[in-house]
């Protein structure tokens, strides 16, 4: 792995950051981590499988609300709600994605935008009398990990970035396996993928379900960090930002991290320029798209034990020697 040193450097930097940052910047870093988590999970769907899904905020919302409801109404501890939040988001994803999974490109994009809006409006309308309407839910308690209460920004910082680290490892494993290859094949040419034995519908749905599970868990952390959630936190703009982070990244996980820093961190850095801030940000994005339309960091090639470390010895192949010579000429 060529990018290992970069990851180690980034990891070390992230470990010591809370020692030098004030609370404000730590909060910014928590948000960056949260978006990184969301974008890493969307990257499985959008980056690896090439499914144009712009509704990730819907799954994020389902997770956050499941945690908020279970915690405030049933007094469940935050971490106990996390698997359920993930599972609820995954189930929701399965139900809404099943009928639309065969749609392509822009058609799917429009439907997924619709999903975010439907979820947001359902939340505002106090669906099942559980979501608190447009005021949302407040009084969500702080999480406890083995008796340790996670309250301060620094605590959340380590929690979120710990989850980012774990996600990096798990999704890297996925990328290197038959699963990741199947998603890449679907992205390249889904008819060819199906034609050489990949169950395209199943893998697309699995990508959706997995990505939604992660977004649901990110929702848990968000609810616990904010202690108050409202429908407006899960609007279409959130989906667009997560989507843009993945597109800007180029599809690699390191790219997603860098891109999350740029998208969430840069506007904060530019806050001094108050009025011109969004203008500068927009210009930077435009220049990016002109210079690097493929994104910041496309994924590198996978390495396989065997063929990569020295070629296998030349073995006799089908056909005669004359044809062999003919081909190498």
């Amino acid at each position: 792995m060529k990018r290992m040193p970069l990851y180690l450097a980034l990891g070390a930097l992230l470990c010591v950051l809370p020692l030098v940052c004030n609370a404000y910047w730590l909060d910014v870093c928590v948000m960056i981590g949260l978006y990184a988590l969301l974008a890493l999970s969307l990257n499985v769907i959008l980056g690896q499988a090439g499914i144009f899904h712009m509704g990730h905020a819907a799954f994020f919302a389902v997770g956050a609300y499941v945690t908020a409801i279970l915690n405030t109404l049933c007094q469940w501890p935050i971490f106990c709600t996390m698997p359920l939040a993930g599972a609820a988001a995954a189930l929701f994803a399965l139900l809404v994605a099943r009928p639309i999974i065969h749609l392509r490109g822009d058609y799917l994009l429009i439907v997924t935008i619709g999903i975010v809006e439907i979820v947001r409006i359902a939340l505002i309308n106090d669906i099942f009398g559980l979501t608190g309407g447009s005021n949302g839910i407040f009084g969500i308690s702080r999480p406890r990990l083995f008796g340790f209460r996670i309250v301060k920004s620094a605590h959340f910082y380590y929690l979120v970035w710990g989850m980012v680290g774990a996600s990096l490892l798990l999704f890297y494993g996925l990328w290197r396996s038959r699963f990741g290859r199947a998603l890449n094949c679907i992205k390249e040419d889904d008819i060819a993928a199906e034609g050489c034995g990949v169950n395209v519908t199943r893998y697309k749905l699995l990508a959706f379900v997995l990505g939604a599970f992660w977004a649901g868990m990110a929702g848990t952390v968000y609810a616990a960090k904010m202690t108050t959630i409202a429908p407006e936190s899960f609007n279409f703009m959130e989906s667009v930002i997560i989507f843009a982070v993945v597109i800007l990244s180029g599809g690699s996980q390191l790219g997603v991290l860098v891109s999350a820093f740029l998208f969430i961190g840069l506007p904060e850095v530019l806050r001094e320029f108050s009025n011109a801030r969004m203008l500068i940000f927009g210009l930077a994005m435009m220049i990016m798209m002109i210079w690097r339309p493929q994104g910041l960091l496309p994924p590198g090639p996978r390495h396989y034990a065997g063929p990569s470390d020295g070629l296998p010895p030349a073995a006799p192949r089908a056909g005669n020697q004359a044809t062999e010579a003919g081909r190498s000429a």
Partner: peptide
């Protein structure tokens, strides 16, 4: 290999 085997 399934989803979990692939991730892990």
């Amino acid at each position: 290999a399934g989803l979990f085997a692939c991730m892990l």
